[in-house]
């Protein structure tokens, strides 16, 4: 599972992501973008390609695992950093 957020202030509707990872990103009308905020593991490679291809770098993807979030629990230490922005 990968978490995704798109900075839609930045997004200019180039639709590169919708071509590269249509399972996750889709244009809605001429300019608006809809996306699945939590994609399953399978298309991670596609997702990374889509994020990298965004001309305005508007796609934010998990760079680390969040770790424990139970009340009182501490986060897991940083690991598996793939592409922090």
């Amino acid at each position: 599972m990968v978490r995704i957020a798109v900075d839609l202030n930045r997004c200019q509707g180039y639709a590169q992501c919708a071509f590269l990872a249509p399972e996750i990103f889709a244009m809605h009308g001429d300019e608006a973008l809809l996306y699945d905020p939590e994609a399953d593991d399978a298309p991670r490679e596609k997702l990374d390609r889509a994020a990298a291809a965004c001309p305005v770098q508007a796609i934010l993807v998990d760079a680390v695992e969040p770790g424990g979030l139970e009340p009182g629990a501490a986060d897991a230490p940083a690991e598996g950093v793939s592409r922090a922005r």
Partner: peptide
């Protein structure tokens, strides 16, 4: 399923 992506570890105590 709209949790925010984590851009780096925050190593926090969560209440």
């Amino acid at each position: 399923r709209t949790a925010l992506p984590r851009l780096r570890s925050v190593d926090a105590t969560w209440r």
